[in-house]
């Protein structure tokens, strides 16, 4: 249990740090926040349940007022803003990513992990994100979707990175996969 608590807490801290380390850019010149990559990795590396708990812990601290979101934002205000759907979708995204990356694990782990990350970290996350955006900004779902399309390619790239990083980590720390 001590180990699980430590993993959940350290991953919550990791997701925070990914948004706060200056210039942790993913692609040259494009300052995409790495925070949602952290969410996908939480699911892949800690598994569905603990991954989702790590993300929930992170959001709990954001709600308590710690400035842990990318760019140093935090507090209850962010849950009133247009991106609230993405925030609430984070733990679900981690869970879905973790669940399917474990389910589909087979002969081509990188591919299946990437697919799981796209399903959880892009598809499911955007459903939440789009509904939230539509509600806060008073648009129809179709309008919100048409705006959000712009960000999908970046997140698909992140899903790809999540797959590569997950496999490298599991190769270097075989004990992590063994504990299930």
């Amino acid at each position: 249990m001590a180990r699980h608590i430590a993993q959940i807490a350290l991953f919550a801290a990791l997701i925070a740090a990914l948004g706060l380390v200056p210039k942790f850019d993913l692609a040259a010149g494009v300052p995409i926040t790495a925070q949602s990559l952290g969410v996908m990795l939480a699911g892949c590396l800690l598994g569905a349940r603990r991954g989702a708990l790590a993300v929930l812990l992170f959001l709990f601290l954001v709600a308590l007022g710690l400035p842990l979101l990318a760019g140093g934002r935090g507090g209850l205000g962010v849950f009133m803003g247009p991106t609230v759907g993405f925030l609430l979708g984070f733990p679900v995204a981690a869970f879905v990513t973790g669940y399917f990356s474990a389910q589909w694990r087979g002969s081509a782990p990188v591919v299946t992990t990437v697919l799981a990350a796209i399903l959880g970290g892009v598809f499911v996350l955007y459903i939440f994100g789009i509904v939230g955006f539509a509600m806060v900004t008073g648009q129809t779902l179709a309008q919100a979707t048409s705006i959000m399309w712009v960000f999908v390619p970046g997140d698909v790239v992140k899903a790809g990175l999540a797959g590569i990083i997950t496999e490298s980590v599991l190769r270097l720390r075989p004990g992590l996969a063994a504990q299930g």
């Binding site: 001590a2 807490a9 991953f11 993913l26 990083i165």
Partner: peptide, 30 residues
């Protein structure tokens, strides 16, 4: 770019191991 992500994530996971050790060094049940 993104290549630092791997050592960064590994570092955090290894920290989790040492922290869990530190927790066990001072707690009976958790």
């Amino acid at each position: 770019g993104w290549r630092l992500m791997l050592p960064f994530v590994l570092g955090a996971l290894d920290d989790a191991e040492t922290v869990s050790e530190a927790l066990r060094a001072r707690t009976g049940t958790l």
